[in-house]
Design a protein around this nucleic acid. Structure first.
Lengths: 111, 111
DNA sequence: ACTTAGTACTTGGCCATGCATAGTACTTGT
DNA sequence: ACAAGTACTATGCATGGCCAAGTACTAAGT
């Protein structure tokens, strides 16, 4: 029951939401996402991101195509699917509700 | 990869935060917490709450005392400890940061 | 007295997910 | 050739929410 562990738990589910959103804005590959997540101070490592992308693809929420790179191996560029967009919308609502609920609770004063 | 599942994931970690906060506001027992969480639209069931309370107690973040009830079996009334208060403060910061980070990402427009 | 219903708490096992770690494959620079 | 950098893959672990079943105590009905 340490702080770091709880922080990890808080990120669960949110990550999926954030990544779907990033992909929905245009073609990106893994390193793009890592960069954006890091700049938003959401720490993510490869070992988390890649399996998640695989899950999203298997669920039909995203697709990818191989694109040759001028430096290094080819990259998987991801795009969101129709189904992914619908899912993203639902997640947006869920996030809104969760934020409201939590803020409602922590704004209650001592009774 | 269904919606309900992701909603569960999003709640992870947040729950701990919410419950600690509720306890910090005064003595409560499990049903009080369930009621408040439900009224804030955070769905929680017994099988989730009781193990969590046990974890919090083992970690020294909360304490409880048995109190006789006029109707039904005695109840465990929980209070927060010094250590729990400190932990709660850290979680508050973490929640703030997570909200900011997530909102930063989902507010980015199509590039 | 016995049964039924309601309340409070407990326990064991399942599953999804983030993460650590190690490994593969390709390209470029020296 | 070799090293370094980049991109992706695979395995196994720990955490924690949830389901389901169970225990224990009290109060009300007959």
């Amino acid at each position: 029951m340490n702080l770091e562990n709880t922080q990890v738990q808080m990120r669960k589910g949110i990550l999926e939401f954030c990544i779907l959103h990033i992909i929905s804005r245009g073609e990106v590959y893994a390193s793009d996402m890592l960069e954006e997540l890091t700049s938003a101070k959401i720490m993510v490592v490869e070992g988390t991101l890649y399996p998640l992308l695989t899950r999203l693809r298997k669920a039909g929420l995203v697709e990818y195509k191989w694109v040759e790179s001028t430096s290094g191996p080819p990259r998987k560029y991801y795009t969101i699917t129709e189904e992914g967009l619908a899912f993203l919308n639902s997640l947006g609502l869920t996030w809104e509700e969760l934020m409201n609920s939590t803020n409602q609770i922590i704004s209650e004063k001592q009774s």
